[in-house]
Every structure is written in C-alpha cells, then in structure tokens.
Amino acid sequence: MILGIDSGSSSVKVATQEGLYTFSSHLGEWRERNLSSTFSENDIEYEYQGKKGFAGTLAQYESEFLRQMMGSTKAHEDAKIRTLIAIHRYGGLTNEIVVGQPILQHNEQEKQKIKAMLKGQHTITVNGITKTFTINQVEVAAEGGAVYWALNTKAPLIRIIDIGSGSVNYATIEGGRYIDKDSSSLEYGAESTKSQNVNSMVESIIAQTSKKWRKEDVVLIAGGMAEEVQDLVSSYYKEAKAIKVPYVESGQIDFAHPVYANALAFLNIARGLYCV
C-alpha cells in the first residue's frame, strides 16, 4: 500500500488512496489503569519490541511523562513509533511510504538514518491487535518544499511557509526547481516555545524569509495554523494565502485543510516513485 506520512510533533497526518487521517503525536509511558476504558479512537496503547506505551489522546490524559519530540530531524525512535502506528491503522501487509524531514537536516546522512529505521518487517500491537507488516520502500521528502508537488500550478516562482508545531520550513520553487539557497528551517514552531505569541512568531518568520524573498512574491502557507496566520503573513507578503491542496475523495475533487499539505505531497511523490 502507498502512504504519505507526516509524523509531526503535534499530530500525525496520513494520506492514502482511501482518504486523509490524523491522530495526536503524543507518546507517554504505559501503566496499569484501574479503569481501562477508552473514550475515542485516538486513545492508543501500543507494544513494540517488548516495550509498552500510551499514544495519542490516551498519552495526553494518562501518562505522567508526556513526550512531544521536536527538532530539526525525524531520525529518532518517537518518529518511528508514530509512523508504525500510522501504518498499523491505515496501511497494508506490504507498504511503500514517503515521510518528511525538516529542510535544515534534509541531507543524505539523516535521510539514510530514517530509511534504515523504517525499512523492513515490523510487528506492533495497537489496542490489543497485533499486526506484522513490511515497509518495502522508504523515501524522505523535504517538509514544506515537497508541498509544491501536490499543487497544480504554473506559477514561475512559489514561496512556501510550512508552520509546524516543532519547526518552520520555508522553501522556494522556481520553474519547477527547488532552490536550496532560498530555503531552510527555523528551529521553533507553534508549540515548541514557552511563548505562544503568534504575532511575534510570524514577525520572526518574515524577518528571516525577507532576507531573500520579495514582498510581491507568491507565498503559500501550509500547516495547522495556516488559515490563522494568513492575514498576518499577508500584511507583508501581499500575495500570501493559506494553501488549498486538491485531492480526490469518492470520485470528487475536494480541497484539504492546509494541515494535510505535506502528507498529500508525500502521497503524490510516492505515487510517482512506486506506481509502475
């Protein structure tokens, strides 16, 4: 099965041929509970390689030591667990996937680490159901920059701001070519700092990107906060707007919320790589 998986620090977004899905990225320690009822489909207990844990909303409410691993790389165990839970829930027995990595650490060394930790056979138990599946192929796309390949646009120059919970990616695509010198990541996001001042965060993003970008450039905003910050970003970049990514559901073309932009881009890239 082909999947695009965006294992973010706040939520995991999954795009497949069947639809779009999301669940909380929170992870925490497992413990015995006096009342073991679950209240939503995102209350998750898992066991992998002999280690148990809580995930999703169950971790948020019942774990004492809650984890939201953030930073400029996804080459870590928490991202692996989130991805395996996603495949357990929405994948098949054999899978070909594309996952993401922040632009700042989108280098061959980090990409190989991610591929090595994901590729192969895995057995994981989620909410009492044990599944064994294989990840046959893994590719690692640049978060933010990959979004261009989910769009149907002929604009000669596109700037993309991807606001995640743990990092902000900003990317430039010119003539269908990724421009590395005008692209990078900021090592903060919507939930990674003590201050939750959205205005100040956007001002900082603009201060950084405006070193290379022009006020009149077309700027597309991705991520869960895209619609919330659209007016703030457009106060400087006049052509800025929250991205609308087209996708087909039940035979009809719809437009996904900007939070799914990376996952849909990864799915489109996966289709190009794996559909022969």
Rank of each mutant, 00 (worst) to 15 (best):
N107Y: 12
E110T: 15
E216Q: 14
K113T: 04
S250F: 14
G4W: 04
A86V: 03
K154E: 10
M225V: 11
S167H: 06
Y274N: 00
K215F: 05
P258F: 09
G175W: 03
I163G: 03
A79N: 15
V98Q: 09
Y247A: 02
L84I: 04
L186A: 05
N95H: 01
T134F: 08
T125G: 10
G50S: 06
N268V: 01
Q121P: 06
G272P: 00
K241Q: 11
E174P: 00
D217W: 02
D231W: 04
Y21W: 09
I253N: 11
G251A: 10
E249R: 15
I114C: 10
K13D: 13
A242W: 03
N169Y: 01
L35F: 14
Q208D: 05
E108D: 15
V245P: 03
Q137M: 01
S167P: 00
I269E: 02
L58E: 09
K51M: 06
A226M: 01
K51E: 14
V229K: 07
L66R: 10
P246L: 10
A240D: 08
A79F: 09
F65A: 08
S192D: 07
I179M: 12
I179Q: 14
A207W: 02
Q60Y: 06
I253R: 15
E110R: 11
S7P: 11
L35D: 15
I221P: 05
I44C: 09
K244P: 06
R214Q: 08
S72M: 12
Y61W: 08
G272W: 04
E228A: 12
L267I: 01
N169D: 14
I206K: 06
V198C: 04
K111R: 15
T22G: 12
P246T: 09
E143V: 01
Q101F: 07
V202S: 09
I85Q: 05
G224K: 07
G19S: 09
T193S: 11
D182E: 14
M1A: 10
K154N: 07
L66V: 10
G19Y: 08
S204P: 03
I161M: 14
G145M: 04
S234Q: 14
N197W: 11
A142Y: 01
M201K: 08
S25L: 06
V98C: 09
S9C: 13
K212C: 02
L157K: 15
H106S: 12
G92L: 03
K244L: 13
I124S: 14
I85K: 08
S210I: 00
I221D: 05
L267K: 13
T22Q: 15
E32V: 13
K115C: 07
V126Y: 07
N268L: 01
E239H: 07
S234E: 12
T130W: 05
I85C: 04
G71Y: 02
F255D: 02
E64I: 12
A256C: 11
I206M: 03
N262M: 01
P156L: 05
I97F: 01
G19R: 12
V219N: 05
T153F: 00
T57F: 09
I85T: 10
A207F: 07
K181F: 11
G175I: 01
G50D: 04
I163L: 11
L264A: 03
E187N: 13
